[in-house]
Design a protein around this nucleic acid. Structure first.
Lengths: 139, 139
DNA sequence: CCGCATCCTTCAAGATACTG
DNA sequence: CAGTATCTTGAAGGATGCGG
């Protein structure tokens, strides 16, 4: 068959066929806030109001919802102190840390190539396509 | 687990503050199909109808839309042959390959922990059986 | 065979106000 | 302080038909 590069071999067999898995993880961390919340917990436990400030832009509703889902999935832990005033802290579980570790490359990729993509997007119609035989671009 | 300090150091400072970057990449690959399409192109160029079968579940509209966006962002290339019948092939660009490489850890994480998350999610079902004693933790 | 255009449905997410 | 409840919207996504 085709000889795969070494880099490809390192990642093993790509689960291209397992669209199911990909979809599962995307539905989880691909939603608007989950990954951001997880990322903000990378350096220790935070309380609700603190996260509300850190994520900045998230509504109380979405923060509560996101935290609830992440807790339910076992990615973060919730600790409530019966004090006055009330205090609740959230922290990454070991599983949550592994997720973060796996997501870091993607985040770094985003930081590195964000500008390039933005430029490409602005050149909405690159006239100089590949020099291919009889290429007919249909508007 | 095995949270290696080296891994943490390698990722440097987590761009938790750069929610913007994270949002950008999530808006791109976090949509329903982009990553799946990219993953399916990992082993070479594919034509439209072939992708339509591979991704399976995607509508023509979404495939066209996704391919268009990815092409515009410079992640995949589009090659149209003016033949009869028409033929169009899509392939990863070098940039697209770097994205795929960065996404692989996440995909592998999904495959590895998919079951665990599913179990965790199922265990939080107050409606299934009530009156469960103990479990005074969290909430 | 490729893929764009139109219509329609659903649901995630924001705003706001209220409670324990 | 840490949520919950309700309303509303807008974008994503599916179905279908046409056009090159």
């Amino acid at each position: 068959m085709t000889t795969e590069p070494a880099a490809r071999e390192a990642c093993g067999r790509l689960p291209a066929e397992h669209g199911d898995f990909v979809r599962q993880v995307l539905d989880r961390i691909g939603d608007k806030w989950s990954l951001l919340v997880v990322a903000n917990l990378h350096d220790g436990a935070k309380r609700y109001s603190h996260l509300h400030e850190l994520v900045e832009g998230i509504s109380q509703r979405m923060l509560t919802l996101t935290l609830s889902q992440l807790t339910q999935d076992g990615l973060i832990s919730r600790t409530a102190y019966a004090e006055v005033p009330p205090r609740v802290e959230y922290a990454l579980t070991p599983l949550g840390e592994t997720l973060l570790d796996s997501a870091v490359p993607l985040i770094r990729w985003a930081s590195a190539n964000y500008g390039t993509i933005r430029e490409n997007r602005n050149q909405s119609h690159p006239e100089s396509f590949r020099g291919l035989p009889g290429a007919a671009e249909s508007h």
